[in-house]
Design a protein around this nucleic acid. Sequence first.
DNA 1: TCCTTCATGTAACTAGTTACATGATTAT
DNA 2: ATAATCATGTAACTAGTTACATGAAGGA
Lengths: 178, 178
Amino acid sequence: MELSNTAYVILGALHERPRSGYDIKAFADQSTRHFWAVSYGQLYPELKRLLDAGLIESEDQPTGSRQRTLYRLTRMGDEALADWVSDASLRPCEFRDEMLVRLFFSDAVELDKRVELARNMAGRHQAQADGLCRQGESRRQKTKENPMHEVVLRFGIELHGFMSEWYERLAEQLEANR
Amino acid sequence: MELSNTAYVILGALHERPRSGYDIKAFADQSTRHFWAVSYGQLYPELKRLLDAGLIESEDQPTGSRQRTLYRLTRMGDEALADWVSDASLRPCEFRDEMLVRLFFSDAVELDKRVELARNMAGRHQAQADGLCRQGESRRQKTKENPMHEVVLRFGIELHGFMSEWYERLAEQLEANR
DNA sequence: TCCTTCATGTAACTAGTTACATGATTAT
DNA sequence: ATAATCATGTAACTAGTTACATGAAGGA
């Protein structure tokens, strides 16, 4: 039975510790978000599927009359995660950038617009890099386990830094031969 | 009326010259593909919508008994494209990388697997950069107009080059503290 | 003859987002 | 009080892919 990538994000989140659906979402929002986002619309149905498949198990943990279901990995779930991570097959890296489409077709507009667009893109990536930086600072203290989390965070920061600089340089070059 | 980004890729393709649906697909496959792919399943319905909206017009150009419909931009379509490209609002750059999710959770597996994964990712981006290079060579001779096409191509090559090197460096670092 | 390219299209499916609905607990 | 956070979920929608179906033209 094939699992979605989102399912593996869930398994990965639960590998660290038992979590509620809400908690998994919060985890994803501040960690995998920049390369794999998770929404409630997928999360809760997916949790059901993983339960049915026996990869996770649940435990009720209400606080007063507020419901809360805590999920944890089963042995099967743990194996499924490890197998998936170990799988050496190449998967495509998906990029979709609307602004890059605009830039691609920007010969259709005047130079000023083109420069503005490049500057906007530089700013966008700078902002994204900054956001990831702050994310890293707020998580720095905890979990020295899972060093790969920080590695991937650094990747994000440096990648967006690279793109920001690239677009900034482009804006300057475009402006130069005005 | 809101148009999809795919619709703008079509308008952009037709801005250069009149094209058939098949031709638009071929154009996208060898140019916008790495940041905005287009499939037939979206292309043909989208062409109908653009016709209805009066942004493009069609002309039958059969070869013998093989049908062919040539599309071209209307004045309205040309304006819609220019307006869209000039729109200064920031749009998110979407990244989705299954292998990066694996890397993120790869503390769950042994070092060897982690190194292998990083190497695979480096190879994947090297291959992608090479593919874009070849694409550039085959298109080099034609169209000195649309210099932004080449700019965006270079961006792709350098971006994938950056990622390839980053992952290669990571693999070496991981291997070093074995 | 047969393979590749040109050419158009649809149906079924998959993945995922957005908006909504509900309500308890905790901090200000 | 009231706002923020914790908590769970669904329905409707949007976007896009894959697989299929069909068939002509041109080159090997």
